[in-house]
């Protein structure tokens, strides 16, 4: 019947190393979890007694709340820690913070951190499960997964689909997780944005590059529009927001020229009138709020799949930490 998929292991750090089977297993597992959020009592006891720490060293609303809903709907006990107001501002190192949490007998850590590689660094040093909620410019795997799930919901399959990611690819962990996940599942991936905001060797990730948004819209089935972080303008990557909107903005005039209806995704928070116009964001082809709904289901699936599968690696990490 179903072929056996190698377990995810202790942690979810990124999508780069996952197989198509593992990614599909997460997406398939997310399906029944969607229904739980529609119940009157939105709770199942699957993680009862587990303690999960949401360790957020960077600002986040959507991701943190989405993880928290996912954890609570699985009956886990959760604690939120943000860097402001914690010992981190007193100069405690990441490992010390985590080991102190471990000493309070936790089971899982969901971490967002500004440094690329922080999630892997932590995962190798503590026996708890570690889920990456975004590390620097590296990956944001659960966002990638919820994008994959949303695209699959609307397009049926990802195989052979043409997906273009628009905007600041260089600084985007969302873009990287999307590229890895989409490519693994057989989609064609393109990126489109100012050359200053594309990684130098982006073609090596297996992406087409479109310098003009009009060409990208002609080519694609799906557009994933990324947020233009305002600090990029201040540091000189783009001349002005108005110019960015004029050249790269996803507008309904531009979409009207497309040969087919495009599915529009955006990871949020949106800068309306900069990378995306309001009539597109609120239009009939926008699935931006479906992404948010799917985010909870995907995170429930990841928590569930990691919860049981920790034994050997956790032992190794424990011994490493004690020696």
């Amino acid at each position: 019947m179903t072929e056996t998929v190698p377990p995810l292991g202790k942690d979810l750090v990124g999508l780069e190393r996952l197989t198509a089977g593992q990614i599909l297993q997460i997406l398939d597992t997310a399906e029944p979890f969607k229904e739980i959020s529609e119940r009157r009592i939105k709770k199942v006891p699957v993680l009862r007694g587990k303690t999960i720490v949401n360790l957020f060293f960077e600002a986040s609303t959507r991701t943190r709340i989405s993880f928290e809903f996912a954890e609570k709907r699985l009956s886990a006990d959760t604690v939120n820690i943000s860097s402001s107001g914690s010992s981190v501002v007193k100069g405690e190192t990441l490992v010390d913070t985590a080991r102190n949490l471990e000493a309070m007998r936790i089971d899982m850590v969901v971490m967002r951190h500004g440094a690329s590689g922080a999630a892997r660094f932590l995962a190798d040093r503590i026996p708890s499960n570690v889920i990456n909620a975004g590390d620097g410019w590296h990956e944001h795997p659960t966002q990638g997964l919820l994008d994959l799930l949303t695209i699959r919901d609307h397009m049926g399959s990802l195989d052979g689909l043409k997906v273009c990611i628009v905007g600041d690819i260089l600084h985007s962990r969302v873009a990287r997780s999307n590229i890895y996940g989409l490519r693994t599942l057989g989609a064609e991936v393109a990126v489109c944005g100012p050359r200053t905001l594309l990684p130098p060797m982006v073609e090596e990730l297996g992406c087409h590059v479109f310098p003009h948004i009009e060409d990208a819209i002609q080519w694609a089935d799906v557009l994933n529009v990324l947020r233009l972080q305002l600090e990029r303008m201040e540091s000189g990557y783009v001349p002005s927001l108005r110019e960015y909107n004029r050249i790269w903005g996803v507008t309904s005039e531009r979409l009207d020229a497309a040969p087919r209806d495009l599915l529009i995704l955006h990871p949020g928070p949106m800068n309306r009138g900069v990378e995306i116009d309001s009539d597109v964001a609120d239009g009939s082809h926008s699935v931006i709020l479906n992404q948010v709904t799917n985010g909870v289901a995907v995170r429930m699936a990841v928590l569930y799949l990691l919860a049981g599968g920790r034994p050997e690696k956790a032992e190794a990490a424990k011994q490493g930490a004690e020696s």
Binding site: T2, V5, P7, Q25, D28, T29, E31, P32, E35, I36, V44, P45, V46, L74, Y304, L305, A307, G308, G309
Partner: peptide, 19 residues
């Protein structure tokens, strides 16, 4: 599946269908 009391013992299993 999500109401079992043996997740710790058997680990997660693929969920075949929702309720």
């Amino acid at each position: 599946t999500l109401y079992r009391d043996d997740l710790e013992v058997v680990g997660p299993r693929p969920i075949v269908g929702g309720s």
